[in-house]
Each structure stands twice: as C-alpha cells, then as structure tokens.
C-alpha cells in the first residue's frame, strides 16, 4: 500500500499523495486552481474561498481540503467560475481599489484574478469604506484601503518571522489588520526583510521608495495571466 492514489480533476486522472490538499495535488499535475489567501510557504487559512472547487459533489476550499482516493473534482466548471467571479468582485467593492495609481498594479494578485476571470466591471455597488493609511514606519507603509484580509501577513509574522507584528481585530465588516502595538507600525519591530512584508498579495503592505520600479509592460501580469507558471501555457487567454 503506497501513499499515492488517483483523483480526477475536470475529467483528468492525476496522482495525489496522502497529506496533499486538492490544490497542491492539482498544482503538481500542472492544473491551476485560482487562490488568494493561500501561500505555499504558509499554513493554509481557508478564508478567501477563491480556491473553491466541487469535490465529490460538495463545494469546499481546495487549499484546506485533503485529497482522497478517487475524489472527483470540478475546477473549470461554470458554477465554480461564477462563485469565484462573485468573490473577486466582492473583494474589489469591499475595499477602495484605485488600480490606476496603485504601486502594486501589474503585480497584484487580486487584480490578476480579475483579469483572468474577465472582470470588466462590478455588479455590486462599491462600499467606499473609510480606511486608514499607516506611513509612520521609515521603510514600510500599510494602506488598509487595499487590504483583502487574506491573513498572509498575520501568518507570516507569527509563523516565519516569529514576531506577531500583524493580527486581526474586530469582526464582520469591521474586521481589519492591526499591528501589535497600541500605536502605529513605527512602534513595532517589523523589518523590511520580514516575510510578512513580502507576502501581501495586494498593495496593502508596501516597501517605501520602490513604487512603479517596473514600467508598464514589464510587470508580472502585463502579458501573462496569473496561474500561467502552474499551467505552463503560453498565456494566451481570451477574456
């Protein structure tokens, strides 16, 4: 009895090993499952739901759900695609995302998910919440307008940096990332080289003085859709 077994993703049989999540098994087989809060170097969080698939007839988050022998998974499925598009839209309207002047534009994972899913406008009204910017630290700024509450910074600071600089406070629509200090970022021991600073998928935690270094056309997602590195394709995608 080996630890290796077969699961089926969109009609294709792939190998999975015990302990792998659906997302990891699919990725190893060159199948991209869109994701946002997931980061390969951090413990799964399962909060954004972008990686939702249908496994054995039930929806689940593929970044947390272990692969099981003979599992039937739907990933490129109209219903699943529709859920993901709605989730991406909601992330846009819940914050204040002004891509035209955002330093992360072109390399932002939320934006790239929008591109990949052909999002041109949102059906939901924008909430335009009033949020803070913390620019007190000499090297790092936090713009809460763009935070998608993925928890990557929280996990990275706690589990990799061993500092617990970032944490979640409040609940529901009030939920936000706060720093482990009753004041601002400058009062913490966060460093530019911390994992927590590098893993933010959007333009919420940014190193200072590095904005717009890559010109338009030379940025990560200008020509290649997010997920291309997993799929190994040429990046041609009609939207």
């Amino acid at each position: 009895m080996t630890d290796s077994f077969t699961i089926n993703v969109d009609g294709r049989d792939i190998q999975a090993t015990k302990g792998q999540t659906i997302l990891e098994a699919a990725e190893a087989a060159g199948i991209y499952i869109p994701r946002l809060c997931h980061h390969p170097e951090l413990k799964p969080h399962g909060s954004c739901r972008i990686c939702t698939v249908i496994a054995n007839g039930r929806s689940c988050t593929s970044c947390t759900q272990p692969a099981e022998p003979d599992m039937e998974v739907q990933n490129n499925h109209p219903q699943v695609e529709m859920w993901r598009k709605q989730l991406i839209e909601m992330l846009f309207v819940e914050g204040n995302h002004f891509c035209p002047f955002c330093e992360k534009s072109g390399g932002c994972e939320l934006q790239a998910l929008g591109y990949r899913h052909g999002l041109t406008a949102t059906q939901h009204p924008h909430l335009f919440p009033r949020r803070e910017i913390d620019a007190t630290h000499p090297d790092i700024m936090v713009d809460h307008n763009r935070c998608v509450l993925c928890g990557r910074c929280v996990r990275a600071s706690r589990d990799v940096d061993g500092k617990r600089v970032f944490q979640f406070v409040e609940r529901g629509p009030e939920k936000r990332v706060a720093v482990n200090s009753d004041a601002k970022l400058s009062r913490t021991d966060v460093d530019l080289t911390d994992k927590a600073v590098g893993v933010c998928p959007v333009g919420a935690i940014l190193p200072k003085r590095q904005g717009y270094v890559a010109p338009v056309g030379a940025r990560e997602f200008d020509h290649t859709p997010i997920g291309t590195s997993v799929e190994g394709g040429n990046g041609s995608l009609e939207v």
Binding site: G106, Y115, P225, L237, E238
Partner: peptide
C-alpha cells in the same frame, strides 16, 4: 467584443 488578455487592464 472579445479582447485579448493584453488589452483588458485596470490601469
């Protein structure tokens, strides 16, 4: 209207 990936950008 069906535009290639390169032509749909938010910035």
């Amino acid at each position: 209207v069906s535009l290639p990936y390169e032509l749909v950008k938010y910035d």
